[in-house]
């Protein structure tokens, strides 16, 4: 989880991801450029391949949801 937080903070240092209470996508905190940057970093760091089919708000609304997605993709490999 720490690895994920560091990636997210590296992309958007102005957001407190650790104590986040809002929905990152639904509430418009992250924009599409952020999402693309996050996916690029996650693919590299966790050796997964997040495809466009996984680009659903529920997969990116919180760091926990992103971690769940990563675990799901890692299990599939």
């Amino acid at each position: 989880m720490e690895k994920l937080y560091k990636i997210l903070e590296g992309i958007r240092s102005d957001i407190d991801f650790r104590n986040n209470t809002v929905k990152l996508i639904d509430d418009g905190v992250l924009d599409s450029f952020d999402i693309i940057a996050i996916i690029g970093e996650l693919n590299e760091a966790f050796e997964v391949e997040i495809s466009v089919e996984e680009l659903l708000p529920e997969n990116f609304n919180s760091p926990e949801a992103m971690m769940d997605l990563i675990h799901k993709l890692q299990e599939e490999v």
Partner: peptide, 18 residues
């Protein structure tokens, strides 16, 4: 965003370009 930007940005060709 959903049907042009994301598919293009996440495509293998654009990844290689990056």
């Amino acid at each position: 965003r959903d049907y042009i930007f994301y598919p293009l940005s996440l495509s293998k060709r654009f990844g290689a370009l990056g």
